[in-house]
Simulated scan of single mutants.
Amino acid sequence: MFRNREEAGEKLGIELGKLQLHQPVVLALPRGGVPVAVEVAKALGAPLDLLIVRKVGAPGNPELAVAAIVDGDPPDVVLNREIVEAYSLDDADLASLIDGERPELERRRSAYRGNREPLSIAGTTAIIVDDGAATGTTMKVAIRALRRRSPREIIVAVPVSPPETVAELAREADRVVCLSQPGRFRALGYHYQSFPQLSDGEVIAAMDEAAHSRKAGRHGNQKVTHKQRGLR
């Protein structure tokens, strides 16, 4: 059991730090993945960004995903073809359902990202971070969308997930780092002592703080370099 998301992120960062990672970029799945990813990015000294995924529900059954939209420029649409066929949805039906979810995706992008441009992951090691993966559905969508953006490697990093989900994600990603794989998996909250729901404001504050810390760290490194040059 983890004390909170921050502790889980610290432990994930230690494990990821043992790997030989080429140009890592940390991508958080909001909301719950953000505090975890902040600590991972700190541990790796890596840039942090968000990967916003919006589920597109089936007609009359919004919990069943026929597709998902992944934020990007342009956004990626990943279809769940089995569900599309089961509901006999044609292109017009799909377009209507997808268009209905775009406003919320745009709202979240504007709220969470502000004026920050998304990071390019081409040629990098993209590390997708969440606070856990119960079914792995959102994570799978994220992986498939990222494949289209030409990363060198995709790593899934989660504190806790059932073994069967880890196995499924391992078939999609290049590597999976999971700290705990309990045989009897219950809801994610059971694996944390403190597991509060996060607000949009907390996500924004965490991302702002991470960006400020990274900027301050770069400036500090530059000052050290200048002093070293002066001593030579």
Results as ranks from 00 to 15, higher is better:
residue 209 E to F: 00
residue 108 R to N: 09
residue 15 E to K: 13
residue 155 I to Y: 01
residue 218 R to D: 13
residue 186 R to C: 01
residue 103 P to A: 08
residue 54 R to F: 07
residue 41 A to I: 06
residue 113 R to H: 06
residue 51 L to F: 04
residue 164 E to I: 05
residue 59 P to L: 12
residue 136 G to R: 01
residue 164 E to H: 14
residue 104 E to T: 09
residue 209 E to N: 10
residue 133 A to K: 01
residue 47 P to R: 10
residue 48 L to T: 03
residue 34 V to Q: 01
residue 229 R to C: 00
residue 35 P to F: 05
residue 163 P to V: 09
residue 201 G to R: 13
residue 77 V to G: 03
residue 98 I to D: 05
residue 100 G to F: 01
residue 104 E to H: 08
residue 86 A to R: 14
residue 94 L to W: 03
residue 102 R to N: 03
residue 146 L to V: 14
residue 114 G to F: 10
residue 58 A to V: 11
residue 165 T to A: 08
residue 153 E to S: 14
residue 188 L to R: 02
residue 101 E to L: 06
residue 134 A to M: 08
residue 49 D to L: 08
residue 206 A to R: 08
residue 208 D to S: 14
residue 223 K to F: 03
residue 21 L to N: 08
residue 232 R to A: 12
residue 141 V to Y: 13
residue 220 G to V: 02
residue 38 V to M: 02
residue 78 V to E: 04
residue 102 R to E: 10
residue 85 E to K: 14
residue 20 Q to K: 15
residue 129 V to L: 07
residue 80 N to L: 06
residue 213 S to F: 01
residue 8 A to E: 02
residue 79 L to I: 03
residue 107 R to A: 13
residue 98 I to V: 15
residue 57 G to F: 11
residue 149 R to P: 07
residue 131 D to M: 07
residue 228 Q to C: 09
residue 187 A to I: 00
residue 43 A to Q: 10
residue 65 A to H: 06
residue 71 D to N: 13
residue 111 A to R: 13
residue 169 L to A: 10
residue 120 S to C: 11
residue 47 P to W: 02
residue 179 L to W: 09
residue 4 N to L: 07
residue 11 K to M: 15
residue 220 G to P: 02
residue 11 K to C: 03
residue 154 I to C: 09
residue 53 V to N: 01
residue 77 V to W: 01
residue 52 I to T: 06
residue 52 I to A: 06
residue 149 R to S: 07
residue 35 P to Y: 05
residue 2 F to Q: 02
residue 156 V to Y: 04
residue 84 V to C: 07
residue 6 E to V: 13
residue 157 A to L: 09
residue 96 S to F: 11
residue 5 R to M: 09
residue 4 N to M: 08
residue 163 P to L: 08
residue 19 L to A: 11
residue 23 Q to M: 09
residue 143 I to H: 04
residue 167 A to S: 15
residue 82 E to K: 15
residue 185 F to L: 10
residue 105 L to Q: 04
residue 86 A to S: 14
residue 119 L to E: 10
residue 27 L to T: 03
residue 217 G to T: 02
residue 165 T to F: 09
residue 30 P to H: 04
residue 18 K to P: 00
residue 44 L to G: 02
residue 189 G to R: 07
residue 110 S to W: 00
residue 59 P to T: 12
residue 26 V to H: 05
residue 230 G to L: 14
residue 1 M to D: 05
residue 107 R to I: 07
residue 2 F to Y: 06
residue 35 P to N: 10
residue 126 A to I: 07
residue 31 R to K: 14
residue 35 P to T: 06
residue 219 H to E: 15
residue 66 V to Y: 03
residue 88 S to F: 07
residue 222 Q to T: 10
residue 124 T to E: 12
